[in-house]
Amino acid sequence: MGSLFTPLSWNDTGFILTGVWNTVIISVVAIGFGTLLGVIVGFIRAESNRLVNTLLGGILDIFRSVPLIIQLILFSTYIGAIGHPLEPFVAGSIVLSLYSMAFMSEVFRSGFESVHKSMQIAARSLGMSYWQTIFYIRLPIGLRAVFPSWLGVALSVIKDSALVSVIGYMELLRTSDQLISRTQQPLEILIGVGIFYFIISYPLSLYGRYVERKMAL
């Protein structure tokens, strides 16, 4: 039969590697912006009074209580409806960054709150300015304390980046999806994809556990 479908071949490697690269890129962008915004928002929440805190917490809660896939669909439909469609990569990065920011701000807030008040007072009494206590005392100590939790969030962002495929971004899972519809060999391709994700994610999670154990001692 002169078939519609062509079997998987070595020529597809490049296509799959593009998918891997795109997954890595969007994860790095989302984790980067998410961390940056998360530190800022987390610090604001640790510093501010109850009213601001509740308000900010309520807004961030939306990102954590609505499925990511719905957020992606809503955002990309919305920017399309108002007439400013964005590249799937840009739209996906924005949503994924905000999503990871919501989780990371919570992590960093608990980190900043774990730095005891007396330590700040001690730093100030040694003649440090307000900003010096932030940059030399609170940031380093607070950030180090929450590193394992941060890594946990980062790992889940890598895995959740698979969902950006719904708005048309060619990441790993979507490339495999396209290969499957051409080759009709879902099992081989999916197992390959699973191994790729595992290779990206497993070493990081092992490292996270190692750091956690070292810090517990």
Binding site: L155, K159, A162, L163, S165, P186, L190, V193, F198
Partner: peptide, 21 residues
């Protein structure tokens, strides 16, 4: 380890398309 280190969407594809094969 597989459950914790691969995306949920991948698991669903595996159950739906992978097992279908």
């Amino acid at each position: 380890e597989i459950a914790r280190n691969t995306p949920a969407l991948f698991q669903i594809y595996m159950a739906y398309f992978g097992l279908g094969a």
